[in-house]
Design a protein around this nucleic acid. Structure first.
Lengths: 350, 350
DNA sequence: CTGAAAGCGCTTACAG
DNA sequence: CTGAAAGCGCTTACAG
């Protein structure tokens, strides 16, 4: 299958290559007859523009990059990345963009690779997952004026564009659900290691406050995202006699459930538990674990859409997109499992 | 950060842009002093070549594509894709190639996207996952003379380059393990839907034959990769009083285990089970499930290496790479879990 | 509404 | 060993 050039298409259609270029790029002010003829020839020949040439000439590639940090061990149990990538590719396809993929596994790879990204004439913009481990990446991107959007709220309130789940809302509706079940002493297995954990905690507090319940610091124990640590701190927590626990991640919830069951307590009768993330591995065989589900695909799509907006208008103010989360109820006694819906929040700060 | 061009680097270093290009591309016959000077300037300026321009001029992009079929539901429980992508990106980084990602979710996306891939001047080659659903893709790739490598053995013995796990070996060592445990009546929950299933079955047969054991067709029941179907056919299988079962996938093994336990039989004492894939979700809380582990990362790397070989030498004979699988033993009674190693097979046919 | 021409930043024969 | 120059296939002011 021969590859045609603009010149050749023009010759066949009896117009100049400039004109062909214009119809391809949907420029206005092309006579209908010419447009039709050119489109026909393109159809017949199966002409596809040469992206490299277009990129060189126009200085835009319609290629977006996705940078994923050195792969974490939880990738093997957490469907986060597949779902995220699914959302991103879907949005890219819709917008007629192509996705390029950067993933590094060693610091050396990261080092070399980052330069390739930052000065990559081929990228119109970049999506960065929040837990990249080389902090200077952000600086370098800004210096190079590469448009980018982060997935996950940045630490230190850096004024960069980002898309995230509404973690505050998640913590709040999780806790509210426990309150609605009539629980009086609601504990929390927290993690304050990142912005998301902090926000989930604030949601927890807000729910208690709204219901005129006191925050008891003894009911909040520090997790670190690991199942084992969660198991240990839950043992401590149980001494405080909680009747409900909000766990900041489903992964930790596995440990929490183990500790609770070993103590001979029933779920949800004695202690109701609400997790976060809706991980299949956690939820499987744990019919009483309600949890907060993040719209990960939507986060991916929103990241693309936001990035496109930024590329379009580089001087736009900081974009902060928060996607709503859902409460997935599995701890009803006899009732149908259900889902609570919420609505999207898009803010533009600055 | 300003982007430099070859011309500018040349001016600073006091040579022509052609010379700069030559040192960047490691051409021989460059005087050491010039090379050093140019390299210095590149270092200082942080010069990065413009990929689009290079691609246009040289007709090669150092970009590889990965095409993943409309995402399957099992993506959410199966770490196959993350691991595969990890292996592929690693090999790409090593070889200084960039990975571009194609994934489609609807037939329309697939349709439009495929054209973009096939006639993509920006791709040096493509890796295709075997279970693409549009069969014509392969034809179109061949017509367009796009170098590509498939992951997974092709059906109908199509003479295309591919990389796969050694499924025959897997079936064989799985069955041999059961024989080594002294089992006499070894059943199989099969799937013959694809080349892999067929090979696993052949491995099963080969192991029996080598041990002078008869193949009893009644001991082979048809699975379809689903847990539910596996559960059902296992109930039938149990009537034949097997004392060992080779299950062609861990996912199905979950159903098999359920059926066996419901029948009041002990694993592995009454019935030993060997699965395939080493899925965390299946293995978790199933201490007695031995399984065959595929080197998925290596398959990804091998796909890249094979593709690079094909790109280098388009007239190379059909590449068929089979990577060894491992038996992961978890059904020893009291002993340490262990792994049996095997060695790689690379064949060149035609 | 359309075309001729310059230019995007590289590579690569061709000369020397 | 090095340089001048053509060319890769597009886009886009500039004229008309």
């Amino acid at each position: 299958m021969k590859r045609f050039t603009l010149e050749e298409i023009g010759k066949i259609a009896g117009v100049s290559r400039a004109t062909v270029s214009r119809v391809i790029n949907n420029h206005p002010n092309i006579s209908d007859s010419v447009r039709r003829r050119v489109l026909e020839v393109i159809e017949e020949t199966g002409y596809q523009p040469n992206i490299a040439a277009r990129t060189l000439a126009s200085n835009q590639s319609r290629i977006l990059g996705l940078m994923i940090p050195a792969i974490l061990s939880n990738v093997f149990t957490n469907p986060y990345y597949p779902r995220l990538i699914q959302g991103i590719t879907h949005a890219c396809n819709e917008a007629n963009y192509t996705l390029t993929f950067f993933m590094f596994q060693t610091p050396e790879e990261q080092q070399v690779g980052t330069s390739r990204i930052v000065n990559n004439a081929l990228l119109d913009g970049l999506i960065v997952n929040a837990d990249y481990n080389e902090n200077s990446l952000i600086e370098r991107l800004m210096k190079a004026r590469m448009p980018f959007v982060q997935i996950g709220k940045p630490i230190d309130d850096m004024p960069i564009h980002y898309v995230d789940a509404d973690n505050f809302l998640g913590g709040k509706i999780a806790t509210q659900h426990l309150i609605d079940m009539g629980r009086q002493r609601i504990g929390q297995v927290a993690t304050a290691k990142n912005a998301a954990g902090e926000e989930r905690n604030e949601g927890y507090m807000a729910a208690l406050e709204e219901n005129d319940m006191e925050v008891d610091e003894n009911l909040i124990v520090p997790g670190d995202f690991s199942e084992h640590q969660a198991y240990r701190v839950t043992k401590d927590l149980l001494k405080q006699k909680p009747d409900g626990i909000f766990v900041q991640s489903d992964w930790m919830a596995i440990g929490v459930i183990r500790a609770v069951q070993e103590a001979g307590l029933r779920i949800p009768d004695d202690i109701a538990i609400v997790g976060f993330d809706d991980l299949p591995i956690a939820v499987r065989d744990k019919p009483h674990l309600s949890t907060i589900r993040q719209p990960i695909e939507s986060i991916g799509s929103a990241a693309v859409e936001t990035l496109l907006r930024v590329i379009e208008n580089p001087d736009i103010g900081q974009q902060q997109v928060k996607l709503p989360v859902e409460l997935v109820i599995r701890d009803t006694c006899g009732g149908e499992p259900g889902i609570e819906e919420n609505t999207e929040t898009v803010e533009e700060a600055s």
